[in-house]
Simulated scan of single mutants.
Amino acid sequence: MYTVSLVFMIPSGLGAAISTRVSNELGAGRPEAARLATRVIMVLSLATGVSVGLLMLLVCNLWGYAYSNENEVVEYIARMMLLLSVSIIFDNLQCVLSGIVRGCGLQRIGACVNLSAYYLVGIPAALCFAFVFHLGGMGLWLGIMCGVVVQMLLLLAITMRTNWDKEALKAKDRVLSSSLP
């Protein structure tokens, strides 16, 4: 969890940045700039996710020594790092896509996607993998990964179907309605 929390700071920052950028571009009436920023951040997110995932694979046999000197703990962490390295890629994309959806002013849809992905898919899958298939901690993480993948795919579908011109008009209307007395 400490490793994931540390690594999650990268996509968290990217998600906040793209949320601000998309909302500013849409509010300024520049839908093409918002679309371009979305494409750039997706490539950047994928690149950082793959880079960090590869780094995690390179240090997977050593990382456990940061937490314990016991071989059993070090070997368990090495096995988990393989799963975490894949999880990081999806988590990066999911975090950035959440930022895009927030920047478009679709927080309610984003919240529904989060709740459904984790409560309808992630948690049941985690319980199934961990306790039915007896995978323990790895099963719990596999289930959460299933939730992240579902969330990422739903947010990707929303982003790909976004009509940027329409979103810019809606942003303009929101700005105008909030400035009226």
Score class of each variant (00 low, 15 high):
residue 141 W to D: 09
residue 44 L to S: 02
residue 128 C to D: 10
residue 49 G to K: 04
residue 55 L to M: 07
residue 77 I to R: 10
residue 74 V to H: 11
residue 134 H to R: 14
residue 51 S to N: 01
residue 152 M to L: 08
residue 119 Y to M: 07
residue 77 I to Q: 13
residue 67 Y to E: 09
residue 112 C to V: 08
residue 86 V to M: 08
residue 73 V to M: 10
residue 26 L to W: 02
residue 66 A to F: 11
residue 78 A to N: 12
residue 108 R to L: 10
residue 10 I to V: 15
residue 77 I to H: 13
residue 89 I to D: 08
residue 112 C to L: 13
residue 70 E to W: 10
residue 130 A to Q: 04
residue 12 S to N: 11
residue 56 M to V: 05
residue 88 I to W: 08
residue 40 V to I: 12
residue 149 V to D: 04
residue 31 P to M: 09
residue 176 L to D: 15
residue 80 M to H: 12
residue 67 Y to K: 06
residue 1 M to T: 06
residue 146 C to E: 03
residue 27 G to F: 06
residue 58 L to Q: 05
residue 113 V to F: 02
residue 65 Y to A: 12
residue 73 V to T: 15
residue 175 V to F: 11
residue 80 M to N: 07
residue 176 L to M: 15
residue 117 A to E: 04
residue 74 V to Y: 12
residue 162 T to Q: 12
residue 55 L to G: 15
residue 72 E to Y: 10
residue 48 T to R: 00
residue 7 V to S: 08
residue 11 P to C: 04
residue 119 Y to I: 08
residue 32 E to C: 00
residue 29 G to W: 02
residue 130 A to R: 02
residue 113 V to M: 00
residue 84 L to C: 07
residue 180 L to K: 15
residue 95 C to T: 15
residue 33 A to K: 13
residue 19 S to E: 11
residue 171 A to N: 02
residue 53 G to K: 07
residue 24 N to Y: 02
residue 86 V to P: 00
